[in-house]
């Protein structure tokens, strides 16, 4: 689906390299009537910045190549995307990482392993 053509529905960009997680996100958010866009690498995520901004980004940190932090920084630097809520969803659970994420402008930080997928969905809706 082309992000530019999708109308009416809420758009969510999922930056995640694990295919299983991606699948889970897809099922869950399409169920909630989101238009789900996926980037499996940091570089792919950056390509999205040229396009229309989404309503919320779910960002994983451990990405091959360009890291999630770099993506976050790029989003926040981007004039159009800078106000898009970015929720970090990572299994890096150290306080330093959380703090760094918040410092770089993440709207929230969730540790995947500790959270149910419903909790994730609830949080996402909250930031829309």
């Amino acid at each position: 689906m082309n992000i530019d053509t999708a109308i009416g529905k809420k758009k969510i960009l999922i930056v995640e390299d694990d295919s299983f997680i991606v699948k889970a996100y897809q099922i869950r958010f399409e169920n909630d009537n989101f238009d789900v866009f996926i980037a499996t690498t940091g570089t792919d995520a950056l390509h999205y910045l040229d396009k229309e901004p989404v309503d919320v980004v779910l960002l994983d940190l451990m990405l091959p190549g360009v890291s999630g932090f770099d993506v976050l920084m790029a989003i926040r630097k981007n004039n159009i995307w800078k106000n898009v809520p970015v929720i970090i969803l990572s299994n890096l659970g150290q306080t330093e990482d959380i703090q760094r994420g918040k410092d770089l402008g993440a709207t929230d930080y969730i540790v995947k392993a500790n959270a149910r997928i419903n909790e994730v969905a609830d949080k996402v809706k909250r930031y829309l």
Binding site: F20, K23, A24, N91, A113, R116
Partner: peptide
């Protein structure tokens, strides 16, 4: 943790 997360979810 990542695969575990998908299992859980």
């Amino acid at each position: 943790r990542t695969p575990l997360t998908s299992i859980k979810w």
